[in-house]
Structures are given as structure tokens and as C-alpha cells.
């Protein structure tokens, strides 16, 4: 009955609808790309074991719905996040302009203890489209914005062609780990929902 203790990193992916959040997550975790992902309704998550230096950590990646009205559900998603990934489509300047809103909204709703140093990572996705000819947001412009926000790491990515996806998530894991406090995370045992037994004594050490 002992609870396992391990490092769990919670990563939130935010960005406008259709920029490729689900694709990036799936490319990273499952090494698969499909142009036919269904729109994410509400949220979804995947986990992956990652080696960061000599530590093995579990990264829990939360994928969120991009439509604006879903922001009001944010509190439940954002709480306890260790890193926030902001994704835009390099072929749509609007999705880039909205990063500001996504960042602000995240900081308001997640209210991290040290908002100025909370780790963000920015990904400019879909660089493969038309061989880059459709690009509306230059890497320079994006890096400028990232610099102005306290030096947020920026990556040009293509979930479709698996370009920079691993590198980006490695950085995400590293930065999340820096932010992670020393608290011990409690991973509950599997529970049999059909069991009639009285609820197990709660591990009062946590929560």
C-alpha cells in the first residue's frame, strides 16, 4: 500500500485553435503524426518518461482546447503546472499575437508563486508548410518577443516532420525540473471501483 514517490512534471500546452498542440504532443510521446486529429474538446493528456541529466522523470503533458471560450475552464488545468508551452503557427501572425493573451491568462489563472520566473517555452510550429514560404512570423520577431518576456526559449518546430520536437521537449523538461519544488508527489495506487470495502485510509501525509 505504500505510495510510490517520483518526480512528476506537469506541463501545459497552450495556444490558438489549430496551431498543432495535439500534434506536437503526439509526435513527441508517440512518434506519430496524423493530419486528422480531432479537435481537442476540453483537455487531454499523455505521459512520458524522460531522462534529464541523470534523473528519470515522468512528464505529464496536458493538451488543452484552443478555442477562446475554453479559457474559462483553465483553472482546473493550470493548477500545479511546472512549465507552460506556448504554441503558435508561424504561418499565422494572429496566433503569434495571441501568445501575449495566453501567457497573461495562464499567469492569472495558475497564479504561480514566482510569476516573473515561471518557465515558459515558445514553439513556432508548422515551419514545414510550403517549404516555409507561407511563413508570416519570422524567427527574429518571435525571439524578440521571447527576449522581452525575460528570455523565454524559442523553437521553430514541425510536428509533421518531427523537426526540433525532441529538443524542444527536452528543454521543457529541464526548465520544468528547475521550477519543480522539492515537494513529494503522491501517485495513488490503482483503486477497484467495484470493491465494496470501506474507502482506504487516506494517506494523510499529503494533500
Amino acid at each position: 500500500m505504500a505510495s510510490r514517490k517520483r518526480t512528476l512534471l506537469k506541463v501545459i500546452i497552450l495556444g490558438d485553435s489549430g496551431v498543432g498542440k495535439t500534434s506536437l504532443m503526439n509526435q513527441y510521446v508517440n512518434k506519430k503524426f496524423s493530419s486528422q486529429y480531432k479537435a481537442t474538446i476540453g483537455a487531454d493528456f499523455l505521459t512520458k518518461e524522460v531522462q534529464v541529466d541523470d534523473r528519470l522523470v515522468t512528464m505529464q503533458i496536458w493538451d488543452t482546447a484552443g478555442q477562446e471560450r475554453f479559457q474559462s475552464l483553465g483553472v482546473a488545468f493550470y493548477r500545479g503546472a511546472d512549465c507552460c508551452v506556448l504554441v503558435y503557427d508561424v504561418n499565422s501572425s494572429k496566433t503569434f499575437d495571441n501568445l501575449e493573451n495566453w501567457r497573461d491568462e495562464f499567469l492569472i489563472q495558475a497564479s504561480p508563486s514566482d510569476p516573473d520566473n515561471f518557465p515558459f517555452v515558445v514553439l513556432g510550429n508548422k515551419v514545414d508548410v510550403e517549404g516555409g514560404k507561407a511563413r508570416q512570423v519570422s524567427e527574429k520577431k518571435a525571439k524578440q518577443w521571447c527576449g522581452a518576456k525575460g528570455g523565454i526559449p524559442h523553437f521553430d518546430t514541425s510536428a509533421k516532420e518531427d523537426l526540433n520536437v525532441d529538443d524542444a521537449f527536452q528543454t521543457i523538461a529541464r526548465n520544468a525540473l528547475k521550477n519543480e519544488s522539492e515537494e513529494e508527489l503522491y501517485i495513488p495506487e490503482t483503486v477497484d471501483v467495484n470493491a465494496q470495502a470501506a474507502p482506504r485510509r487516506a494517506q494523510s501525509s499529503c494533500c
Binding site: 476540453g42 488545468f77 503522491y186 483503486v191 477497484d192 471501483v193 470493491a195 474507502p199 487516506a202
Partner: peptide
């Protein structure tokens, strides 16, 4: 109640 306690412990609320 069992399931709810389990989900809550893992931070999984219905909205998710």
C-alpha cells in the same frame, strides 16, 4: 466515493 477519492488524489476533476 471510492472512485472520486482516487481521482481527486490524482488531481483529476470532472472538467478534465
Amino acid at each position: 466515493p471510492n472512485l472520486t477519492a482516487h481521482l481527486n488524489a490524482a488531481g483529476v476533476v470532472p472538467v478534465l
